[in-house]
């Protein structure tokens, strides 16, 4: 076993005429906070789905914690946590019931599930049904559900989309804490300030390829611009995407 949490090599995936992922390779170190950035349709989501083991790549391999993520490997699934874009909750269940249900999939006790709920500050919302939670509360619950089995590697897909600034800052603290507890975190986001503050390294993607990888500060100075947002626009252009 190597020290890298993720090793992706030569990933390719085609949907009909569209080459969604076109030869993506990257490595994420254990304990790293890694960001994947790119405009809509750049291939971020498909890349992440291949890496997580949701889709089979046409070409290439993805290893998580040293094991292939495809075909489905339940032993590996116990060691990773995934928060999907938009909250994947069971209908009509309260916050406590949601997290206890996810806990049961991993043989995690109800007590541990309740403690997880506490740690994201949702104890007072435990008896509220999923559709009555605010955007920030739903995101925190969704992250808690992804973390309930204490995974070594966590994927978060646009966790702060649609949140107000308070909720966003609040969530940043949570994400930092998750990372400082020794977990590897992979994050996708459209907010460059978020990536700049949180990520140790970021990969900028477009047209199914990785254009640049590095620590945000390094990318900024390499390109001689002021912020990660400028780096992003410099690399991916200014025209509208879908």
């Amino acid at each position: 076993m190597t020290s890298s949490a993720i090793t992706a090599e030569g990933l390719r995936k085609r949907y009909g005429d569209v080459q969604a992922v076109d030869g993506v390779s990257f490595e994420v170190e254990a304990g790293e906070f890694y960001g994947i950035l790119g405009p809509n349709g750049a291939g971020k989501t498909t890349t992440l789905e291949i890496v997580e083991g949701l889709r089979e790549p046409d070409e290439g391999t993805a290893r998580l914690l040293g094991e292939l993520s495809w075909p489905r490997n339940t032993a590996l699934l116990r060691r990773i946590g995934v928060q999907l874009q938009a909250s994947a909750f069971f209908e009509k269940l309260t916050a406590r019931e949601q997290i206890r249900t996810f806990a049961s999939f991993y043989d995690v006790s109800d007590e541990r599930a309740d403690a997880m709920l506490e740690s994201v500050g949702l104890t007072d919302k435990a008896d509220v049904q999923d559709d009555k939670l605010s955007g920030g509360q739903a995101q925190r619950l969704s992250i808690a559900c992804a973390l309930v089995h204490d995974p070594e590697l966590v994927f978060l897909d646009e966790p702060t989309t649609g949140l107000d600034p308070q909720a966003r800052r609040n969530l940043w603290d949570l994400l930092r804490r998750i990372n400082s507890e020794g977990r590897t975190v992979v994050l996708t986001t459209h907010y460059m300030d978020e990536a700049e503050t949180l990520c140790d390294r970021v990969a900028v993607m477009d047209n199914g390829k990785i254009l640049r990888v590095g620590p945000p500060r390094e990318l900024i100075s390499d390109l001689g611009v002021d912020s990660l947002e400028d780096v992003f626009l410099e690399l991916t252009g200014r025209e509208y995407r879908e």
């Binding site: 997580e52 949701l54 339940t74 699934l77 116990r78 938009a86 994947a88 909750f89 999939f105």
Partner: peptide
């Protein structure tokens, strides 16, 4: 339909259950 729309099917695929 609801589980597919809410991406719960995906989420369940990523949990160690059969």
């Amino acid at each position: 339909v609801a589980w597919r729309k809410k991406r719960l099917l995906r989420r369940l695929w990523l949990a160690p259950i059969g």
